[in-house]
Simulated scan of single mutants.
Amino acid sequence: MQRRRWITTPLALLAAAALAPAAQAQADYPSRPITLVVGYPPGGSVDLVARILGPELSKQLGQPVVIDNAGGAGGTIGAQRVAKAAPDGYTLIVGSNNEMAIGKLVNPALRYDPQRDFTPVGLIAGQTMVLVAAPHTKVKTLDDFVALVKAHPGKYSYGSSGIGTGLHLAGEMVKEAGGLFMVHVPYRGVGPLTNDLIGGQLDFGVFVLSSGLPQIRAGKVNAVAITEARRASAAPEIPAFSEHPAFRKVNIGIWFGLFGPAGLPAPVATKLQQAFQAAMASPELRRKLEEAGARPAPGGGKPDEVLTAYQKVEQEKYARIVDFAKIRSE
């Protein structure tokens, strides 16, 4: 009996010794730079939000926050990388609804699950989308748009930044609500989409508001309506689809959240959430988000729980649109 106790005691001591460094690392977190992954090239809306959040998060955590653009496959390459990263709090992602909600719906073979394989930190902001018309259509109002497309079913096309993106789903929601028949043309980014609109090869396009506003204000395209239920403070002159009797249920936007890999230790997750809340309370950060056309998430509640609930509700909305339009990734 004594011999058994003698063997057990060193084993217990060894186990405790092995756990000690991990516990100390969690207590010291963060002790080195943090990588903030963006699943898109520089210059897009997700990248812009990450670059606004990064400095404030760095200030709160006391360590550099380095942006790492890992673009490709509608944000899913970057998301997959973070899902497989060590759950130590040093690899995070600013994700959007494309890769954190829609991706799995349009591609069941996706190698990660947006709700199972990530630790939610907090909801950063939302942003509306806008449907624009090419000059050759002569469409300047929502009534013009409805009359033209209904008079010529299947003749007109609209472009988005790719199959299964939030922009694509917004276009399909508009089609469903209005009983319209338009051909969807997917593009690899808003650059070629913009060029074809201005050049007259495409009739309509769906943009994130911050991407579409420069072209709208330069008079190169005409704004038809925004896709969220209320007008945007960044462009209050553009009506919302919901103001038209046929489109009252149209309400869809882009959103941005901060996530880590699944299994973040509780002390690390708590520190991240506290730093996130403090960063989001910064008037400077909120001003920059608003100037970029985004709507900062309201405060209140635990940030991880707010993001989880929002993600679930949005995914249910997307599932209905994906089913209606029979969207599947190529």
Results as ranks from 00 to 15, higher is better:
Gly205His: 10
Gly178Leu: 08
Gln311Phe: 00
Ala319Tyr: 09
Gly166Tyr: 05
Ile254Thr: 11
Val82Gly: 09
Glu291Ser: 03
Leu131Glu: 13
Thr141His: 12
Gly260Ser: 05
Thr141Arg: 12
Met182Ala: 05
Met1Ala: 09
Glu330Arg: 13
Pro55Val: 00
Tyr310Val: 00
Gln215Gly: 00
Ala22Asp: 13
Gln315Phe: 01
Tyr158His: 12
Leu61Glu: 01
Phe324Trp: 14
Gln26Phe: 02
Pro298Tyr: 00
Lys312Leu: 07
Phe256Tyr: 15
Ala325Ile: 06
Pro108Leu: 02
Ala125His: 04
Pro153Cys: 02
Ala12Thr: 06
Val208Glu: 15
Pro303Cys: 01
Pro261Glu: 03
Met129Gln: 14
Pro64Arg: 04
Gln115Tyr: 02
His152Ile: 00
Pro21Phe: 04
Lys288Asp: 11
Asp117Thr: 01
Arg51Asp: 07
Val250Asn: 07
Met182Ser: 09
Ile198Cys: 07
Gly189Ser: 07
His168Glu: 13
Tyr156Val: 00
Pro135Glu: 10
Asp203Gly: 07
Ala85Phe: 10
Arg111Ser: 08
Val183Tyr: 11
Lys59Pro: 03
Leu209Cys: 06
Gly103Ser: 13
Ser31Asp: 15
Leu92Ile: 06
Gly300Asn: 09
Thr270Met: 07
Val268Trp: 09
Ala18Ser: 11
Thr76Asp: 12
Pro30Tyr: 02
Ile254Asn: 15
Ile216Asp: 07
Ser45Tyr: 05
Glu284Asp: 11
Val183Met: 14
Lys140His: 14
Pro42Asp: 10
Gln26Trp: 14
Ala125Cys: 05
Ile93Phe: 08
Ala229Ser: 14
Lys59Tyr: 03
Ala125Pro: 09
Gly205Thr: 05
Gly178Ile: 04
Val146Gly: 02
Pro239Glu: 02
Gly43Phe: 08
Val37His: 12
Pro10Thr: 01
Ser96Met: 03
His168Gln: 13
Ala50Ser: 11
Ala240Cys: 08
Gly212Ala: 05
His184Ile: 02
Val66Arg: 14
Ala18Asn: 08
Ser161Trp: 04
Ile93Leu: 14
Ala223Tyr: 10
Lys326Pro: 08
Phe145Glu: 09
His152Thr: 00
Val106Thr: 15
Ile34Ala: 04
Asn222Tyr: 09
Ser160Arg: 10
Gly189Met: 10
Ser96Val: 01
Tyr40Arg: 11
Ile77Phe: 12
Pro21Met: 03
Ala23Gly: 10
